[in-house]
């Protein structure tokens, strides 16, 4: 009986997603079309990658505020290396991801080795990443190749859309599976949960907590670098000094998906659904004629409701244990 109940609770987030989708299909103007579905998918790519990354960090009990500006910095430097420095596009893509990993490592060292609170250290790197991007590009906007460019025209086709096919979705799906395997099936994932649940107990169990935490931030950095590629593929032009606030999209996705800010619990499926809920909400509200301010308002409302619901769920679960 108990098991069934918990399964029902797990189904809640997907059910909300479906309800929202159906609701907007009924009341929205031209919402129920393949085009809208593609738009929903395409606006989820870069947020999805950020959310996958930050999910690992939040489960260890940390937070990453640098997601947004690091993503921009990596996209900016990738474009710079391609357009200004004349690197081959493939190499620029590698650089884009490498920048993410590098900032992740820096965060990891700050948090794990130097024992800075994650909030502070990632607040610092958030600003540093923004600065680095502007300094290197001399505050010039950078552009990635469009699909008609002779050089690197394959960029958008590979990452966003090819002959109307939303190929980005395959990337997202592939990396989602990788993230699921890492978080829920690998040793690394177990350590992530153990550290988030009780870091000191994990350390006394002989686990090298410092090492694993650095790896968690580096892995998250990798996903943020990937987010940089997909942001670039979606928006082409990257402006220095932006990215502030984007981190909240990633964090919000994870939180809506039920990842606990206290650490120790959460799931990758939840995060993915959280990202889609945000995206459906955004596009759905737009189809009802409600513009950006309303979208922001409702997304905020959903965050609060999601966490309220989660608290209620945890309390219900705790009540089961005998005292």
């Amino acid at each position: 009986m108990l098991g069934k109940k918990i399964n029902l609770q797990k189904l809640l987030a997907p059910v909300v997603l479906v309800i929202l989708y159906v609701l907007f299909s009924i009341i929205g103007n031209g919402f129920f079309t393949t085009d809208t579905l593609k738009t929903i998918l395409e606006s989820s790519y870069y947020i999805g990658f950020m959310a996958f990354g930050v999910t690992f960090i939040i489960i260890t009990g940390g937070i990453d505020l640098s997601l947004g500006t690091v993503m921009m910095c990596s996209a900016l430097l990738g474009a710079y290396s391609f357009k200004v420095a004349g690197w081959p596009l493939a190499l620029s893509l590698v650089l884009t991801v490498a920048v993410g990993v590098m900032f992740g490592l820096v965060n990891g060292v700050f948090v794990a080795k130097l024992k800075l609170p994650p909030f502070i250290s990632t607040l610092g790197t958030m600003m540093m990443a923004q600065g680095v991007g502007s300094i290197i590009t001399k505050v010039q906007s950078q552009t990635w190749p469009t699909s008609t460019d002779p050089l690197g025209g394959w960029f958008k086709k590979v990452f966003i859309r090819y002959n109307g096919m939303p190929v980005g979705a395959f990337w997202l799906a592939a990396f989602f599976i990788i993230a699921v395997l890492i978080l829920h099936k690998s040793k690394f994932g177990r350590y992530v949960f153990a550290i988030g649940s009780n870091e000191e107990a994990a350390r006394l169990s002989g686990i090298n907590v410092e090492k694993w935490k650095i790896m968690v931030y580096a892995l998250s950095g990798f996903f943020v670098g990937m987010a940089g590629i997909f942001y670039a593929a979606a928006y082409t032009t990257i402006t220095p000094g932006t990215g502030n606030g984007q981190e909240m999209n990633g964090i919000t996705g994870a939180v809506i998906g039920g990842v606990s800010m206290a650490g120790g619990s959460g799931s990758m499926v939840g995060t993915l659904i959280g990202v889609f809920i945000m995206s459906v909400l955004k596009n759905g509200l737009a189809s009802c004629g409600l513009q950006a301010p309303w979208q922001t308002f409702f997304t905020g409302l959903v965050v609060v409701l999601a966490v309220l619901l989660d608290n209620y769920r945890t309390r219900a679960a705790n009540r089961v244990r005998k005292s």
Binding site: K187, R190, F193, A194, S197, N198, A202, L204, G206, I207
Partner: peptide, 21 residues
């Protein structure tokens, strides 16, 4: 609770944590 166990995780996860390999 403070130093020995990840009380929010399962018995199995706690048992094998010392030697996941």
């Amino acid at each position: 609770k403070r130093y020995g166990l990840c009380i929010g995780r399962s018995i199995t996860e706690n048992t094998v944590l010392t030697d996941l390999g």
